[in-house]
Design a protein around this nucleic acid. Structure first.
Length: 364
RNA sequence: UGGGGUGUAGCCAAGCGGUAAGGCACGGGACUUUGACUCCCGCAUUCGUAGGUUCAAAUCCUGCCACCCCAG
């Protein structure tokens, strides 16, 4: 009997993933990862305990053994430290993409090997085609839940023994299945926020690790219109949290840039053309096929989770990066985030956004 | 000190005798395995202040206060 170790979060998706695997005749072991040690007992401190309780309940219900494992050290070193470094550098990282690469499909994979597992599985909404020499990552059948974006940094080899049991399901059917089997998590609300850390007041959370560095908020022509507590607490295209309003056109204000040298946050009132870009440069590329489809190719891309697919022309550069030209100007494409490429339902890979070319230069 | 103007929520701002629009900000929620965006809901028993007129005042009258502008 093939053995599968399932990463269980305490949510409904991984619960059903485990259920499906038992139905398919696998020898299933549930494993709950605890990767974040709560520093202080503020908001959401107990959710990890509740989540593990749910994992235990579900595993008892479907009759599989369960374990818990703590990757807090690895998470901190390989994910969170990078996350903080990126923020310090003025970028906006995506910790969950890194988490998948470094923890769920690396540290966890190694752990499963020690349990002599043939496969690992998670509750991700994505599909893997194992028919070829290399695994091919495909979008989930439920397009509205597709999470392939978050998997774009994982080297293809790390997917060789991975199963995504819920990738074929519609979310509504998955909920029904959980309900039909009376799973403890059937009605549980989907969790959001940074993986293993959870929903937080983001600025407050960051402040615990990146102390305030107050500076001015200025318009593109240099008028000081307010003050900020630190550039790292804001990201491109952001509206909330600026605290400025009134006067002018009456429209809301948005972050359109960061001036690291002078520690100034550049803001503008209304939907600025300056928020739009026509191309980007990316590095740290990961291609599931082992290499890009060609030196130049056309495909679709996403620059953030749940964005609709955008047509782009990709040009591979000699330095290992790539230049991505957008068919249509894109709003608030942000350095540190990931550009992920698709050919139809196939996820080709992705890379970290290094810089963008503005539709309208910020400085004349 | 004369003359004029303005004072409505944190900020803009409608209102012009009939019982406080709207926007921004902010708060809450929805959406969402990053950060964002977006959407929905909430947000002045009260109109600088003290009186007066009136059935009824943010709206009219008077005093006072504050700020702005022009004179000087």
């Amino acid at each position: 009997m093939k053995r599968v170790v399932v990463g269980m979060s305490g949510g409904v998706d991984s619960s059903v993933a485990a259920l499906i695997l038992t139905q398919q005749g696998y020898d299933v072991i549930g494993v709950f990862m605890k990767n974040w040690d709560e520093a202080d007992a503020d908001s959401g401190a107990c959710t990890a305990v509740e989540d593990y309780d749910d994992v235990r309940r579900v595993c008892d219900q479907i009759g599989i053994p369960y374990y818990t494992v703590n990757f807090a050290k690895q998470y901190w070193d390989r994910v969170f430290a990078v996350f903080l470094r990126e923020y310090r550098a003025g970028r906006t990282p995506n910790p969950d993409i890194l988490c998948n690469k470094e923890i769920k499909f690396a540290a966890f994979l190694d752990f499963a090997r020690k349990l002599e597992a043939d496969h690992i599985a998670t509750g991700h909404y994505a599909r893997l085609d194992h028919s070829g020499s290399m695994p091919r990552l495909l979008r989930a059948c439920d397009a509205s839940k597709d999470q392939s974006y978050f998997l774009a940094a994982v080297p293809a080899a790390q997917f060789e023994r991975v199963l995504f049991p819920v990738g074929e399901l519609q979310k509504s059917d998955l909920r029904e299945m959980a309900k039909a089997h009376g799973l403890a998590t059937a009605q549980k609300k989907d969790s959001t926020g940074i993986c293993f850390i959870g929903e937080r007041k983001f600025k407050q959370f960051l402040m615990d690790f990146l102390p305030a560095q107050p500076g001015d908020m200025v318009t593109p022509d240099g008028n000081v219109v307010g003050h900020h507590d630190g550039l790292m607490y804001h990201t491109l295209g952001q509206r909330k949290g600026l605290g400025i309003g009134g006067g002018g056109t009456g429209e809301p204000w948005f972050v359109i840039g960061k001036d690291l040298e002078q520690n100034r946050l550049i803001v503008e009132q209304g939907e600025s053309d300056r928020l739009y870009s026509t191309s980007l440069m990316a590095h740290n590329l990961n291609w599931f096929a082992g290499q890009p489809p060609a030196d130049r190719f056309t495909c679709t891309a996403k620059f953030r989770y749940r964005q609709s697919d955008q047509g782009v022309d990709v040009e591979i550069l000699s330095n290992g990066g790539c230049h991505v030209r957008f068919h249509q100007a894109q709003r608030a494409v942000t350095p540190g985030q990931w550009a992920v490429f698709y050919d139809g339902d196939t996820c080709l890979g992705g890379g970290v956004i290094e810089s963008t070319e503005a539709l309208c230069p910020l400085l004349p």
